[in-house]
Design a protein around this nucleic acid. Sequence first.
DNA 1: AAGACGAAAGTGGTTGA
DNA 2: TCAACAACTTTCGTCTT
Length: 316
Amino acid sequence: MNNIARAREKNTNKRDVCMSCGGNSFTEDNVRGESVCTSCGLVVSERTIDNGPEWRAFTAEERNARARTGAPMTLTIADRGLSTVIDWQNRDASGRALASNTRAAIYRMRKWHIRSRLHSSQHRNLGIAMSEMERLSSQLGVPHDVRETAALMYRKALAKRLVRGRSIESVVAASAYLACRIHRIPRRLDEVVAETNVSRKQIGYAVRLIVSRVNINVPLASARDLIPRLSADLFLEGRTVKKATEIIRNAEERFVTIGKDPGGIAGAALYIAGILEEDRRTQREIAKVSRVTEVTIRNRYKDLVRSLGISFNIDS
DNA sequence: AAGACGAAAGTGGTTGA
DNA sequence: TCAACAACTTTCGTCTT
């Protein structure tokens, strides 16, 4: 109990020593993008900032070639002023009509020229989108495979022309959010919104659009995914966390979780587990970390107790 | 004094006509 | 497009520990 109180007192982001058990070795949990103490499992920082290079480099040349910085490229000019123009008139430079076989050749060239222009417009869009994607996912602290999924999602959306008429940023944000859902990494839509300059409404619209039009299977957010994050914030003990997970699993089997805020379910499960395991936290504390109100915790708590038939007086 | 409980009114989002 | 609706929030008074 004492070390928990102490840990709460100095709840800083220091990484040298574990706040809970005093251990000094940490491991990066790449699945959830969290940093975890190896001896007690405390999640120290849930937002690991990726400050390493994108590729490994073994020689000096490689390091130079793979450096992140370089000559600035002007993205505001679409083709950087290097595009070729093929005239529509079938005349040569001095105004004479072209021979028929030359005309056919020019016709083919025009055709491919136009096709490549369309292709390069998508390519250009992708370039802007990917740099935005990199920035956003770095801010969100999500691991690389989630970024890959997000990028793939964006490419699919682009291929289906869903980006047209919408801002690139909103579709990028939606892709990143959905990638988190797919990988079961708890990131709320609001957290994604906070890192962008697009309104929540637009991103929400883009999310629904992608879900309905792109053929992907996005699992529903489950309260279980929130448990590790919340219990780390509350410094709960392992058996309490296990109990809470069990409660949620039972609740899901009885369909009492559908249509309810996962944060509320997770909070209530942790509250009940805390009482059962004598590792109690107040409703206020739980409400704060799970970002719902005490009232919602209470309502879910009542639901869960009633539907699962939990009683509190038989445990020791 | 802090925590838990619940009623009442208000809010943003979804659904169905 | 609009009204009905469920879920959740805010606020506040009361009871319990």
